[in-house]
Design a protein around this nucleic acid. Structure first.
Lengths: 219, 219
DNA sequence: AACTTTCGTTGATCTATGTCAATTTGTATG
DNA sequence: CATACAAATTGACATAGATCAACGAAAGTT
């Protein structure tokens, strides 16, 4: 969803110290709840997280996933409170960026604001195009695009993007993609039969990057 | 989509002069194209506009509508270039906010950045919830919600929100809502038969605010 | 005004995907 | 390890909405 701020990394020109705090999270633990007061921005170090908004029907709906390297909660900064809840899909750790204190210090506020604006702007642009496409695409396209996006994100960071660990359940994917979980299941097993992916439990192996691209684009 | 910056209004503590420029637009005229370099932010004074992103299939897809009082193009500020094209649905006028020069001047940069962050943040939050709901709702819900949102926006600004002027075509609505234009047509006529709205040409009259709310929530 | 083109409506199908239900597999708990 | 519980798969069926097609109504153009 978002890139890590370069200056958020320790030892790289950060005001340092006070701002950064490591925190480990257990599976299922909540980082923060929707409507909660904005406290901090979180940089994912390890593990994965999902963002959910409360639905009218008391149902929660998944609006995003965060992987190592992603920043969580920036737009809460703008609104005083977060606009969704974030829950850990597996055990992991985050870096807590205590923005409140950071801006208080006065130093580098300018740079931070600029970076923030840039990230938010990118997120808005991204959201626009994603929303637009999600609505119009069929189940195959949505899932292919989803897998590709996930693979791209992980490959941009650490490990080779061919092997993905899917921390989220089929229901989470379904909720995120606006499909029934049965549909997700069916499509994934079909993709497997077609030799596009290989799937065992939570780990997904990308067999045909190009095949998936074709599916995402056409079909 | 966005509120007007208070300080963008002439005569209210703005650095003034250079920044603001009135511009009238004809029906069908483009304010700017996607991928175009960011020049300015536009505040809608009169008329209405639609935002479109280019699709993979050379088709354009509507991602938003702007009414008087809305600000257009803020997130272009963050990314150097706009992420969508904007076209006038009818004759109207805009206020051009030449942000580039404004930030150069150095004065009030801080305030502007803060406001910008706040607006972008709100937009991100809004997008999240909208995307989330759009995907899961059926045609009736989407259209009811769409009409309600439009009515709310116009009533928050100028005239009483019961009478709306729909500058956009059914195809535009359909594209925006992820439906076929035939479906939009059918649902609207059904809403009319059910006494929820009255519809003549481009003007829509809201007969049962509550009825629409029910439809949007349930059904 | 006559013409052309775009837009809107309505009807008749077809299909993708949701829903319901049953079974299997995986995961947590005592 | 056995039990219970949650998640995933698979099948059968129902349906919302897309698509195709025809027609009528606006609106722009000459």
């Amino acid at each position: 969803m978002c890139q890590v701020l370069e200056y958020a990394e320790p030892g790289s020109g950060v005001p340092s110290g006070i701002l950064l705090r490591r925190q480990s999270v257990k599976k299922g633990e909540m980082l923060f709840g929707a409507e909660q007061l904005f406290k901090a921005v979180y940089a994912v170090k390890s593990g994965s997280f999902k963002a959910m908004v409360p639905d009218l029907n008391r149902q929660e709906r998944v609006v995003g996933f965060y992987l190592p390297g992603d920043l969580i909660g920036i737009e809460g900064m703008a609104n005083q409170h977060y606009s969704y809840s974030v829950r850990a899909l597996e055990a992991g750790s985050v870096c807590v960026l205590d923005i409140g204190r950071l801006t208080e210090s006065g130093r580098s506020t300018e740079a931070i604001q600029r970076a923030l604006i840039e990230m938010l702007g990118k997120e808005v642009a991204l959201n626009h195009s994603q929303t637009a496409s999600l609505i119009r695409q069929n189940a195959d396209q949505r899932l292919a695009a989803f897998i590709l996006a996930l693979a791209l994100r992980t490959s941009l960071r650490g490990l080779g993007g061919d092997r993905l660990y899917l921390g989220m359940s089929r229901s989470d994917m379904a909720s995120y993609l606006g499909l029934a979980r049965e549909t997700v299941s069916r499509v994934l097993t079909r993709f497997q039969k077609e030799g596009l992916i290989q799937l065992r439990n939570q780990s997904l192996m990308l067999l045909s990057w190009d095949g998936l691209r074709q599916v995402a684009a056409s079909r």
